[in-house]
Every structure is written in structure tokens, then in C-alpha cells.
Design a protein around this nucleic acid. Structure first.
Lengths: 208, 208, 208, 208
DNA sequence: CGGTAAACGAGACGGTACGTCCAGTCTTATT
DNA sequence: AATAAGACTGGACGTACCGTCTCGTTTACCG
């Protein structure tokens, strides 16, 4: 969890594990109270009962810290088997939307992505800590749909991977855009309509 | 373009129109050079050859200024008639992707959205200056498809509006997510695949 | 008094004169309360009701600030005509000793001299702000003694100057050393003994 | 030399004697390189190849450490018999001046005196480690002069002590002030003039 | 000669101050 | 009244040291 690792040798006083947990927790708390742009390293340190130096010894900056702090939220995403591909899609859409309702995720997610547009290392960190955690849901959903016979098994490995990436971008992008850019609720109705579009396409008869 | 209007009375020296243009242009330039988070009001003022006071007389802060500065980029989006709904979708996807390749848009867009999660007025400004400019492309595209007979006319006005919003979130969200979050290129191949998914749905035979 | 002068042009808001006075006064106050080594720029700023930036805009650092702050104390030194050279010497010794009893001078003087051993600019500043203010007392005392006929007029200008410098170093050095290094009181008795030594020399019969 | 003594019991590993020497030597080295105010405990520890803890186990702080480090320099002062009181005075003046030319003494001496103005324990330490080492030269010089018949034997013990203290403050103070405050060289010429003043007094015919 | 108590190196820790930077406001004189 | 210039308050930044602490390791003495 702590990303700037201690120097190779294992001499000297070891880093406090409690401090790590306290810092990440304090970061989430500060995100809720203050939002991304008003969150300060000093404030996080104070909330965590830790010196500023301790923060900087472990994280290079605000962005890195926040990525790690919100990453755990994405671990909570699950894909309970709801019996059909459509139900699974609706389920994951609503779960992801619920996550984006949480103020700490809401304010942090776009901010770190914005920051990452000029910082390759941060982009990699986001991919590892957040994106990959979401993408596994897509892969799991496809596997289930294939077992149910709702989707064909794809022979071409790389084509399959491309399709999964596409679907991931469409699902995650649509939910994020609806929630944060359009600032409209992602409710059951919208999830149903989106699922219909995703599965049936625009030219299909609407699922009414 | 200048959002904080001059006080009612029209006595005294009028605001310089050249200053407005110079400031917005300097803002875009600074976004390219520095990115959102390192852009400062003082730097913009210096680039524009203008005093800081002049900036603050016209914009409330960095977010508002940047929204206005990048808004004009979205005016360049057009929807040339490419002869079919699929072609039109591919065209708009590629145009939007090209816009997101521009560093000033890339770094600014997510940042102001992130900022807007805790600022209702900013959200409204974004909607008016950016989102609405994009959404008209969806409406125009639908109109054309209906004229071509590719899509039915929708009797229920509000249902039609909901559908347009959905499609807008799917298209814009997918492109943004692919480009900024997944950090993968939005090229002709991806646009074709996405268009196939959007029109035909996930369960349809792929358009290969 | 303010040593880092504003940039040449006289455009823009002028520097606050009250701030200068408040800062120097706050510096002396802080010296009394905290001593040289515990005095901090932030504390001085807070006492003066001024932002730290304002301090740094005017003084390069703690040393420069303190030199200017204590310089005014040396303006208070005077040489009232006590009727004889011996009385004048005793008078100036006691005055200087009284100055060194003041905690702000006591703690600051040696500190800035110590600092100046590795800083030529600081040394020049001390000379101008402090040393020269003291040295004029020696010159004035000699002039009076010459008028009274207690000392001969010296024909050789440069020899006279060297002698004045020597006497200055002896008087100031002895008082400072007694007061700060030996940490013994400079009282009337000591002043009398010192004056006797200075005027009559070590081999003369003591003036008891 | 090491001032914070080990706890009473003499079990366990004894303190390293080499460490003591290495630390004091490293301190002098750091004084030369960095001066008093930029010298840090961590740097001294690193130069001495020793952990910071080892420093703090032996000295309470920077001031105490530096006093001990420069104290040995004052042991080098000697009073070779030059045949007359005047020659002895000139000799000691030049020796002391040579000491003050050494950068480690130059930067440290005034600094620790400044520090001691608010620290009684430090003052005592300076007196013991430095001042007393100098004062014995005065006592020795007087004894010789008395043996030569240049100075009378003083019957009153306490008056004799007071006179010795006075002379010490005058000699040491004048040299320090000339060297560090006036920042002028203490050369043979100055030493001769000073000795003339000290022995013959201001009103005596100059020794030309 | 093996146990033990203290010294030791390494480095993390809570603090404090640093000197810089930027935000946003203000005070000038000028246009 | 708007402008350019620049000083102002306030606050966060990231760094450097301080002096303390907690480790694992070493080393002399003492039983």
C-alpha cells in the first residue's frame, strides 16, 4: 500500500504500519470534508496524527496519496450473479454509480485523471490501483455470459481482449459521464435503458 | 464571452475587448505549456500583457477562466453529412477524439469537471459552455438519421430527449474514458468497433 | 531603514511605512522575549501584524533584519560633556554598558557579529549601522579633550585616525568582553579602574 | 572532554574513545567548511562516521559540542618569555590574533558567546573551557613582569585579582573587537600601538 | 566463556521553521 | 471607470534539522 518503498536495507527503525492506515483513512476523510482541491498535505497529516515528513517519506505528492486512498473503494465492487447478462450489467452499473455517489470518490477520480494527463507515472499508478480493479468485473461478466450461452466464446484472443476493453470504456465512461459531467442520476431507469442500448444497440426496437 | 458583466452604469472607460481575447488565448497557451495544475493567474496575466486585476474583474477564478478558454474549442466540432448514421457516428467520435488530443483540452476538461463536483455554479457554466455544444451534435445526427429513415421518429417528446441524453453520455463518455482513463488511442479501428457496438449492440453479430 | 529597496520605477502600490516601523519594533520585542536563536521570521511577522512575504520583500534574512532593528539603539548613545576626559570616558563606558544590559542588544550583537564572519555584506551593514554610530563618540571625545588641552592636536591625519580606531577597539572591546564574555558587571568601580588604565597605563601608579 | 558522563554503573559496552576524538575533529572541520550557523548535528555525525544518537548521548546540543571542539585550540596558546613586559604583551596579542584568524575559532567564538547570553550553564562551560585557559596567560605574564621588576607586587590579593581581570578584558576584548567587529588586521604595528597604550596610557607621549 | 547491559548504526518519527509561491485584494498613478 | 504596476494578507508548499524513538547488532566486562 505504501508506494515509495523504504531503502533496500532493512536496518533502522521500521516504518509504522499504523501510520499508513491512519494516513489513508485521514485522506478519505479530508476528501469528504474538503474535496480534492482544498485538501492539503498538512491537513491530512494533522488528521492522521502524523508529521508532514512522514507523508512525504511515503508518497511523492497529493495525487499519489489520493490514488492509493481511494483505491480501496474499488475493491468493494463485486459482481453477484444476477442470472442474466442484462441483470449483471444493470447490477454493475448501479454499483459503480453508487461508488461515484460517495463524495471521496466523486471529487478524487476526475481530479487524479486530470493530473495524470501530464504525468506518465501517475497514469500507471491509476491504471494499476483503479482501472484494473474495475476491468476484472467486465472479464468476469463476460465469462458468466459465455457459460450461460448468452455470448459466444471468442476464438481470437486479442480480438476478445479488444472487445472487453471497448465494453469497459463504454460502461465506465457512460456511467462516469452521466454522473459527473451531465450530473444526472444513474438510477434503475437509466441503468435499464443503458443496458438495453448496450445489448441491443441503437437500431434495435427499444426494450419497452 | 466575458462572464462577470461590467456594472450597470455605462460611464467611465469601457473594458478592453482585445484584453478578453488576449487573456483567453494566453490561457490556452498556458494550459499547453503548464497543464491545469501548474497554470497560475499571474502567469496568464503576464502572457496576456495584462494586470492580474483585469483578470479578476472579468472571471471569478481559474476554473471559470479555463472553462471559457476551452469552450471555443468545442465550437469547432461539426457534423458533416457522411451519408449514413454509422459514418456520422464514426465521424463525430474521431472529431471528439481529435479534440481530446489537444493538450489544452486534455488537461483542462477533467480538471474542471473534478472541480465542478463541489461547485454548482461551475457545473452550470460547464454545461452551458461545453456540454450543450456537444449535445447538439447528437440531436443533429438523430435528425439526419430520421430523415434518411435509419431511425424512427419518436412520438414521445420526453422519451426522445432521454434517449438523446443517454446516447450522448455513451458516446462522449466512451471516448473520454478511452482517451484519458485507459489512455489508449481512439483511432479508426476503435471508432468502427464502437460504432458497431452502439448501433448493433453487444449480442449482435460483429460487423466484421 | 528598509534595506532591500523597491525596484526602480515608482509605479504600483508603495510600500507601507508603518509596516517598516512595526516590523523593527516587533523584532526588538521578539529579541527580548526569545533571544536571537529562538527568534523566527514567522514570529516577527505575526507580532508585527504583517505577512511573512512582507518581511522577505524588505530584508534578506534574520541577520539583516536584526541589525537594522538594533541599530536605532545605538543612536541613543550620547556624549554629554562631563568636564574632563576621564569623566567623559567613564560616562561613555557606563552608557555603552547600559546598552549592553538591554536584552535585545545583548543577545543580538554578538550573534550578528558571529554571522558576519562569513558574510561580507553583513559585515558592511553592521559597520554602517552600528560600528560607525559608536565610533563618532570617540572622535567627539577626543575633540573635546583637545579643546580642553588634555590631549595634543595631532598633526599627522592618518596617525590620528589610527589612534582613534585603536582607542575605539579598546574601549568597546573591553566593555563588551567584560559584559558578555566574562559576564561581570560594568559598574562605576570598573569604569573608574578602566579609565585609569586607559589614561595612565599599566605601569603608572594606580589612581587610588 | 566528553561532558555528559555515562551513567554510574560501569557495566555494558564502554563509550568509544575514538568516537569522541572523531566527533570533535569533525566538528572543527564542519566549522571551517560551513560556519557556525550552517553546521548541523547530522552533518557532524556523518563526517565523524557516527550515528546522531552517539552525539546526543555525549553532548546536549550544538553549542556544548562546539565549545568543547574549539576549546583545544586555546590550549595551544603559550607565553614564551620574550624578555620584557611589552614584548610579552605583543606576543600574546599576536598569538591570540592568530587564533582568531583560524576560521573555526572565528565563526564559533562569538556565536557561542551570543548563545550563552541566555543560557547560564553554557556560560559556565565557556568560562571553564575557554576563558580560564586564556586568563592564565595574563597571570603568568604578570608574575614574570613582577619577577623582572617591571610591575610591583600587589599586597591586596583581591585588588590584584580585579586588576588581572581588567587587563584580561582589555587585552582580549581589544583583540577580538579589532579582529571580528572592526574586521581590521591585528598585525605587528597594531600590536605595538596597543601595547604602548596599555602600558603607557593615552596621555603618555606616544612610543614613537 | 557465556550472559548481559550498555553503546552503537541506521533510519523512522513528531515537530518547527524555513523561504517560496500563489490566490485574491488593495492602493497608487495613469489613461 | 478601466487599466498596469506592484504591495499586501494569508496559507500551502516541500525541505531541512531538531532531538527522540525503535530497531537489530556489536562489544566489553562480570560472574
Amino acid at each position: 500500500m505504501c508506494r515509495t518503498p523504504p531503502p533496500a536495507g532493512r536496518k533502522g527503525r521500521p516504518r509504522s504500519l499504523e501510520a499508513d492506515a491512519a494516513i489513508l483513512s485521514a485522506t478519505r476523510e479530508a476528501l469528504v470534508d474538503l474535496g480534492w482541491s482544498k485538501l492539503t498535505m498538512g491537513d491530512v497529516a494533522a488528521r492522521a496524527g502524523v508529521a508532514k515528513t512522514t507523508l512525504y517519506r511515503r508518497w511523492a505528492g497529493k495525487s499519489e496519496l489520493v490514488v492509493d486512498a481511494v483505491a480501496v473503494l474499488f475493491d468493494e465492487l463485486e459482481l453477484p450473479d444476477l442470472g442474466s447478462l442484462a441483470a449483471d450489467v444493470r447490477g454493475v452499473v448501479l454499483q459503480f454509480a453508487a461508488l461515484l455517489e460517495r463524495p471521496e470518490a466523486r471529487t478524487a477520480l476526475m481530479a487524479v485523471v486530470a493530473e495524470s494527463t501530464r504525468d506518465e507515472a501517475l497514469r500507471a499508478r491509476i491504471r494499476h490501483a483503479i482501472v484494473d480493479r474495475q476491468k476484472r468485473l467486465v472479464l468476469e461478466g463476460r465469462r458468466r455470459a459465455q457459460e450461460r450461452g448468452e455470448l459466444p466464446y471468442e476464438a481470437d484472443e486479442s480480438a476478445a481482449s479488444r472487445t472487453a476493453d471497448l465494453i469497459f470504456d463504454v460502461v465506465a465512461g457512460a456511467v462516469v459521464h452521466r454522473s459527473l459531467v451531465s450530473a444526472e442520476p444513474v438510477d434503475g431507469e437509466w441503468a435499464r435503458a443503458f443496458t438495453g442500448l448496450l445489448l441491443g444497440g441503437l437500431t434495435a426496437p427499444s426494450p419497452g
